Simulated assay, not measured.
Amino acid sequence: MQQWCYRWLMACGLGHGLLGLGFIGFMASPASAHYVAEWALRFETGVNTQATVAALQFLGPTIASWGLMFCTALQGYWLIRASILWVGMILAIGVWLVFDTGLSAWYGLTSHYVINAFAALVLLLPLWQLRQKIPSSHTG
């Protein structure tokens, strides 16, 4: 089970990196019209403005780099089992979850509630399972 959790989390991190890069192109495509319109409406920039698209495209590299940093922390934790890395991953997910969901609620971006709840579950449950399997002599 531990190996499966590690592989799942690594796939999530790598997928996050790839999705972040894809987000840049997606935001410029017609397929993103509904999402861009939701942001434009919430931030009163006008529907489908180039400024809204550009602002959203800037999220792509941040999303991608978060996924790659997560993979790096996970790999480090897998190799040396230092609890500080596990705690750091939990805290990073917690900061993202609380503030992204809070800001989404503040601005009425309801689509983020479902996305955030799903992402938190698919990350936190396996990460918690990894923590439970580490012998106490390896918690560094």
Rank of each mutant, 00 (worst) to 15 (best):
M27Q: 02
V36F: 07
R42H: 12
R81D: 04
L109Y: 05
P135H: 07
L9W: 00
I134S: 05
V122W: 11
V98K: 03
L18R: 00
S83K: 14
L125K: 02
T110M: 14
C12M: 15
P30Q: 12
Y107D: 09
A92L: 13
N116W: 03
W66V: 09
Q132Y: 06
L56F: 08
A64V: 06
F118H: 04
T110Q: 14
A28D: 07
A117P: 00
W78M: 02
P126Q: 07
L68D: 08
L127G: 02
N116Y: 06
L130E: 04
L79C: 05
Q2Y: 10
A117N: 03
W39R: 08
P61A: 13
Y107N: 09
W66N: 04
Q75E: 11
G60R: 03
S111M: 15
V53L: 08
K133Y: 07
M1T: 13
K133I: 08
A51G: 13
C12Y: 08
L123S: 04
N48R: 11
A51W: 07
W96Q: 02
I115K: 06
H138K: 13
P135F: 05
I93Y: 02
L85G: 03
W86F: 07
A120I: 00
A33Q: 15
L130W: 04
L56V: 01
W96G: 00
V98C: 05
W106Q: 14
T62E: 00
W4E: 12
Y35A: 12
A92T: 12
G17E: 05
F99Y: 09
P135T: 03
L68G: 08
W66H: 05
L124N: 01
A51C: 03
Y107W: 14
Q132N: 14
H16S: 10
